[in-house]
Simulated scan of single mutants.
Amino acid sequence: MTTFKTLGIAIAMATLSPVTYAQQSEPVKIVKTSKDKIDILIGGKPFTSFLYPDTLEKPVLYPLRDAAGTVVTRSFPLAKRAGDPTDHPHHIGLWFNFENLNGLDFWNNSYAIPAAKKSSYGWIRTDRILETKSGNTGVLAYHANWTNQQKDVILEETTRFEFSGNGSQRIIDRYTTLKANVDAVFKDAKDGMLGLRLAHELQIPETADQKFTDDKGIVTIVKGGSDHIANGTYLTSAGKTGNDAWSTRGVWCKVYGKMGSDSVSISIIDHPQNPNYPTFWHARGYGLFAANPLGENIFTNGKSAKNLTLKKGESVTFKYRIVIENGKETTNPAQLNKLADAFGKK
């Protein structure tokens, strides 16, 4: 397993023999398996599924797997895996939403919210699939509406996923355009925008006791040092490591750890055309890994803020690349810089 204890070691790793990016790309197959589920296979093996039933408060990619087939996202709440944490039931696979749009919370909505409080939460409903295409790069595009509980449309979302991979790597390029159906205000808030929930192994091991309160008010105490599964940590393009990655800015952020016999990493890469580039990282040791360009107020302790307003008919586009790597070593900083440079030209 590749372990970066200090920034110096992290930089030194960039000089090691690189993971082979000249590997032959594997074919991607996009298969609709039910009215609200589309499977993505790479090299004939399951990679992820696009889930968009009305029973979920947002569309998600769930679960995510590396090239060896190991699931790198948390299974809860859609499945059960022994030892999985059960906090934050709104953390499902890979998603995109925000905590405060026109006063509605899209991020924290889940089955755990009591009916009497649902009116404060927004919903993202996928109403049509625009494109599916298999090939060396698989394509999945969809249209969705960001609504209140009465189904009044605030934003129209058009998202295009491009999937690719080889023998040790999986890549998702996500392009999301939000068009305002009415005047729309993203008020600077902590919880947003592109998020994923990590598998238990990729969490940062905690030495201190942790206290979690779920959406039903149930408090769980996790004793420090009692978690023998978690072994992950973060590294950003700016050289921040571990829990110090949280609230800092960077072109990319990577989480990595040991899963089975493999070293596994997940990296999120920001795009230079995104609002407030480079993004702030809402990267938590307990397993939330998110890029949030609109959380500046809390991330800077109130020194500055970044609200985003769209007048009716205006739009904004967000672009992100997610890279999942497995093998003897994980994607190093030099390789991530190359991937970021290439993505920035798309």
Rank of each mutant, 00 (worst) to 15 (best):
D270L: 09
Y234S: 07
F76Q: 02
N181P: 04
K258F: 01
N145I: 04
G285R: 02
N307F: 04
S263K: 01
N326C: 01
T177R: 14
Y62P: 03
H91A: 06
N97G: 12
N274G: 07
V182W: 08
T147W: 09
I42T: 13
S304T: 12
G232K: 03
I266T: 06
S168D: 13
W252F: 07
N100T: 10
D105P: 05
A189C: 07
A141R: 14
A116M: 04
P27V: 11
N337G: 03
F76T: 07
H282D: 10
Y286M: 06
S75A: 15
V72M: 00
E26G: 02
P293M: 08
L336W: 07
G69R: 00
K35V: 05
G103C: 03
V60S: 10
N148T: 14
T176N: 12
I42Q: 11
R197I: 05
L94Y: 13
E201D: 14
G93E: 09
G192V: 09
V185T: 14
L7Q: 04
W107S: 13
L16C: 01
S263F: 00
A342K: 14
K58Y: 12
T309K: 12
T309G: 00
A208P: 00
T159S: 07
T220L: 07
I229T: 13
D188I: 07
T158C: 09
P63D: 10
D127I: 08
G295M: 10
G8L: 05
L7N: 00
R197L: 00
K58R: 15
D341Y: 15
T279C: 13
S75K: 13
E206H: 14
G260N: 02
W107L: 05
D209C: 06
N292A: 09
G232E: 02
P333V: 03
N148D: 15
Y320M: 06
A283F: 05
E296Q: 14
V139D: 03
F161R: 06
P46V: 08
T159C: 11
Y277L: 04
K254D: 12
I269Y: 01
G43C: 12
T132W: 06
H228W: 01
E296P: 03
K338E: 15
D209Y: 11
N109V: 14
C253P: 03
D54F: 08
K133N: 02
A238C: 01
Y52K: 04
A14M: 13
W281C: 02
N108S: 14
T70A: 13
R65Y: 11
V71L: 04
T233Y: 04
I9M: 07
D188K: 08
D127S: 13
S304K: 10
A141F: 11
Y234G: 04
V255P: 08
A79H: 02
E206F: 15
G43P: 11
G225L: 11
P59F: 14
G239V: 03
G260L: 02
T158Y: 06
W95Y: 14
V139I: 15
P18L: 00
L41S: 14
A342F: 08
L198W: 05
